[in-house]
Design a protein around this nucleic acid. Structure first.
Length: 712
RNA sequence: GGUCGCGUGGCUCAGCUGGUUAGAGCGUUCGAUUCACAUUCGAAAGGUCCCUGGUUCGAAUCCAGGCGCGACCACCA
């Protein structure tokens, strides 16, 4: 606790001296680092702690090298995730979105935002993050709104934006469309039902979608069914007979089931595509709550899985169900709430991504990736890119900046000739058709990534041509967890190139993911999470940071646990203590109390073999550590410095120096001072404390030059 | 199904642009304490660097195949 208070004092003094601030007017060379904005959903976890520690080390290193460093922090509003978190909190008070209504709910949301914000800032301060807090950005603030409007307007003007009824992945629980990349898959043991459809037997896992069938499909090359293609047959449905055609489509795999499929264009992505190719009608039998519609007759109102059970007896009785078999497959669920996703037809906004992807692929070589193979991974994805569904039926986010005339365009149709206006605020002007002002805004909000994708630009004031944008863009360094390489990194690359004709960052670093020993994921609900603040409480900030750097090899996941983290952190706590003791020995136990020897001759010409040896070791440590940091291999840099300080300087040199203390004193002091500098990016608090209290320096170690081997 | 990655002492990992006795932390064993430091120091045990083959004067490191594990992606109903 005492330590933490001291650390907070040090932190405040750094801040009050303006050491974290970037200076766009400086004549130093700029170096810019962009903090990935953590999601506004609660505590910062271990991954954030590692990520921010890496950022901070690079920032401190570059400052010492004499760069004008901008480390820009921020927070993401995180639409779906935020709403999910808030909903849970509200549920405890017996409240809900519905009960509160949009206005009250938003009030509450902003209040919650402030709470989370405070906890973020506390954590950052404890960690010693040297970010320029004056420039902090929240993704819902007006500055970002302006950027989002520009993005939207540009897409519209370029004809890349469209709205329409398409099949989307719908999460009935979140009540919104989600993207492919927001889903995950779960292995399920299910049943495969074989149903009699006229002359065909079809296999399906979802008999309840029967009511939405509009055709039967087979593969065109399937000899078994060749004669049936194009013919219509009478099918037994529960409500009566219905005529249905057999069509041929390449998408059908003759090997699966019986090689024939029932086509449900309203509730299956593949069937939707088939339906489009054959002009099949679309029937909606499942609604947005995941319940069957009137088309399902007496099964209407049931949830899909209830209906599946309920209709079995009737299927059997009518002789439709031929047989069943056990079937293992993976079903798509919502990444956030794990609810089974329903493909559903819904009115959504889309961006055509092909041209953006093309430009991004062409320019991606201008970015250095760490590890380098991520370039290929991203290119592969962009080569197969789909249009981006950007609308979400949420309240927390950038509301779609489109206004419709409720009189002339009540169905909210979209097009250059329709009565609609793109604007953040109520347009205020008269509708060109009715001459009146009955504007209503689109109800939906934009996908979180629509604004996050602009992060490198919006944080610097784009679309305004600011000094900062001119100076710090493209960013020198960006990092993230590989999890969001498509959601975020690919989008930033595409959007920056498209809207600003430039890559967003020069160096893109992917750190690994910290996983529990099982290899899955850390999760609060499973209770296997390790909390950074607990580590700090036990071992101190610097030790915790050092521990995290040992896991920071680019692109490597690591398995760990509280116990393993504790072991490593304990060792680094001991290391910190070692350094304290070195300082105590070198300074407090100085042979010449006035320090005359040490101050005067700055070690340049010592001919003793021990002095020469340790200076050589120091130089090769400086060289290696510098190279390691330049390659963003912080785990190697810390390892090298650690080994030098403890096992060469302390264990060997200091021991030997005891027999010739006075002579060795200048070297002792020089090595100590240089070691503190080398360690500062990683262990900022301890090094600052000893720098001032033991070495008696007035200025912060933050602004001292990074050691080099020149002149030695 | 596709792509990517991993497999190194008891545990978690580093090393892998090929080259001296393969490293670290934790754990284990033995020894040391008026010394800046027991939050320590010295020493030791413990490794077919997954397997097979290839390239090479030389491979944990490069190549091919295999086995095992994991992640990501994918519209098999």
């Amino acid at each position: 606790m005492e330590n933490q208070n001291k650390e907070q004092e040090i932190y405040k003094s750094w801040e009050s001296q303006g050491l974290f601030s970037a200076n766009p007017n400086s004549d130093k060379e700029p170096y810019s680092l962009l903090m990935p904005p953590p999601n506004l959903t609660g505590d910062l976890h271990l991954g954030h702690a590692m990520q921010h520690s890496i950022l901070d080390a690079v920032a401190r290193y570059k400052r010492m090298q004499g760069f004008d460093v901008l480390l820009l922090p921020g927070v993401d509003h995180a639409g779906i995730q935020f709403e999910g978190t808030l909903d849970k909190i509200l549920a405890k008070e017996d409240l809900s979105k519905q009960k509160l209504g949009r206005e009250k709910w938003l009030e509450r949301a902003w209040q919650f935002k402030d709470e989370v914000y405070k906890s973020f800032h506390d954590a950052w301060t404890v960690f010693g993050i040297s970010a320029d807090w004056e420039r902090e950005v929240f993704t819902l603030e007006p500055k970002v709104q302006k950027a989002v409007l520009e993005e939207f307007q540009t897409f519209w003007d370029q004809d890349l934006l469209y709205k329409g009824a398409y099949i989307v992945q719908w999460c009935p629980r979140c009540g919104t469309a989600i993207e492919d990349i927001e889903m995950e898959y779960q292995e399920r043991d299910d049943t495969l039902y074989y149903l009699q459809y006229g002359p065909l037997v079809l296999a399906t896992t979802r008999p309840e979608t029967k009511f939405g069938d509009t055709a039967m499909a087979v593969n065109p090359n399937d000899e078994r069914y060749k004669d049936l293609v194009g013919k219509e047959f009478e099918i037994e449905t529960f409500g009566g007979k219905k005529m249905m055609k057999v069509i041929a489509d390449d998408a059908i795999d003759p090997e699966f089931g019986t090689g024939a499929e029932k086509v449900t264009p309203g509730h299956d992505i593949l069937d939707y595509e088939i339906g489009k190719r054959h002009n099949l009608p679309i029937l909606q039998v499942i609604d947005k709550q995941g319940r069957l519609t009137e088309l399902a007759g007496k099964y209407a109102g049931m949830k899909t899985n209830e209906a599946r059970e309920a209709m079995l007896p009737e299927l059997k009785e009518k002789g439709i169900l031929v047989k069943t078999e056990a079937y293992k497959h993976s079903v798509p669920v919502c990444e956030r709430c794990k609810t089974v996703v329903e493909p559903i037809i819904s009115e959504e906004w889309f961006v055509k991504m092909k041209p953006l992807a093309k430009k991004a692929i062409k320019n991606i070589d201008k970015i250095n990736f760490y590890p380098s193979n991520y370039k290929k991974i991203l290119v592969d994805w962009m080569e197969n890119i789909h249009d981006w569904s950007i609308s979400r039926s949420l309240w927390w986010g950038h509301r779609i900046p489109v206004w419709y005339c409720s009189k002339c365009n009540p169905n909210k149709e979209v097009g250059k000739d329709k009565d609609m206006v793109i604007s953040l605020e109520d347009p205020g002007k008269n509708c060109q058709t009715c001459g009146q002002k009955h504007w209503i805004q689109d109800e939906q909000v934009l996908d979180t990534w629509f604004s996050s994708g602009l992060w490198p630009m919006s944080t610097l004031g784009w679309p305004n041509q600011t000094k900062e944008l001119e100076r710090y863009f493209p960013w020198s360094f960006e990092l993230t967890s590989p999890e969001i390489k498509y959601l975020w990194i690919a989008r930033m690359i595409m959007l920056s190139l498209w809207h600003k004709d430039s890559i967003p960052f020069r160096n893109m670093f992917f750190h690994g993911m910290l996983r529990p020993l099982s290899g899955a994921k850390f999760s609060k609900s499973l209770g296997n999470a390790v909390y950074p603040d607990e580590l700090i409480k036990s071992w101190g900030t610097d030790a915790t940071r050092m521990t995290l750097y040992t896991y920071s090899a680019p692109g490597r996941d690591s398995r760990t646990s509280k116990q393993l983290m504790d072991e490593r952190a304990k060792n680094f706590r001991n290391f910190g203590n070692k350094i304290r003791n070195i300082a105590k020995f070198v300074v407090d136990h100085r042979p010449d109390p006035a320090g005359v020897i040490a101050r005067s001759s700055a070690t340049k010409q010592s001919n003793h073999k021990d002095d020469k040896w340790i200076l050589e070791e120091l130089n090769s440590t400086i060289t290696a550590a510098t190279k390691n940091i330049e390659n963003f291999e912080l785990h190697l840099a810390t390892d090298t410095i650690y080994d030098f300080v403890w096992h060469k300087f302390a264990d060997i040199y200091i021991e030997k120096s005891k027999s010739r203390r006075a002579e060795a004193q200048p070297t002792l002091e020089y090595i100590l001072e240089t070691s503190l500098k080398l360690l500062h990016p990683f262990m900022p608090f301890l090094t600052e404390e000893l720098w001032q209290e033991k070495l008696g320096k007035k200025d912060s170690i933050m602004s001292t030059p990074w050691p080099d081997t020149k002149g030695k």
